[in-house]
Amino acid sequence: MSQDSFCNTNNTRCLSNSCQNNSACKGFSQESNCHCSDIANNLDKDCDNMRDPYFSSPCQGSVTCVNTPGKRSFQCQCPPGYSGITCEITTGSCGVNSCQHGGICHQDPVDPVCICPAGYTGRFCEIDHNDCASSPCHNGAVCQDGINGYSCLCVPGYQGRHCDLEVNECVSDPCKNGATCLNEIGRYTCICPQYYSAVNYELEIDECWSQPCLNGATCLDALGAYFCDCAPRFLGDHCELNFDDCASQPCLHGGLCVAGGNRYSCNCTVSGFTGTHCETLMPLCWSKPCHHNATCEDSVDNYICHCWPGYTGAQCEMDINECESNPCQSDGECIELSSEKKYGRIAGLPSSFSYLEASGYVCVCQPGFTGGKC
Rank of each mutant, 00 (worst) to 15 (best):
E184H: 00
C87E: 09
N10S: 06
P136Y: 01
L284V: 05
N183Q: 05
D128R: 09
I127N: 06
C36T: 09
C290A: 07
T12M: 04
P69G: 08
D4N: 04
C105A: 08
P350T: 03
L349S: 11
V258N: 02
P117Y: 07
Q366M: 12
C137K: 07
I104T: 15
C228T: 07
R161F: 10
P80E: 13
C154H: 09
E340G: 04
C192Y: 06
C296V: 01
P283A: 10
G103Y: 05
C219V: 12
D131H: 11
A222P: 04
N49S: 09
S56P: 02
D173E: 04
P53R: 07
Y188C: 00
Q20V: 02
L252E: 11
S197Y: 05
H162N: 06
D245N: 14
S98E: 05
T280F: 03
Y226C: 06
V364L: 13
G348C: 10
H101E: 15
E166P: 13
N267M: 10
C76N: 11
W209E: 15
C125K: 12
A118Q: 11
E204R: 14
Q100E: 15
L153V: 10
S18Q: 01
A247W: 08
E31R: 14
C251I: 08
L15F: 00
T180C: 01
S135W: 04
C181D: 08
C87F: 13
C116G: 10
N148A: 13
W209V: 05
G313Q: 07
V362L: 09
H35P: 03
C290S: 07
F55T: 11
D52G: 10
C105V: 09
V171S: 00
N17W: 00
E184L: 02
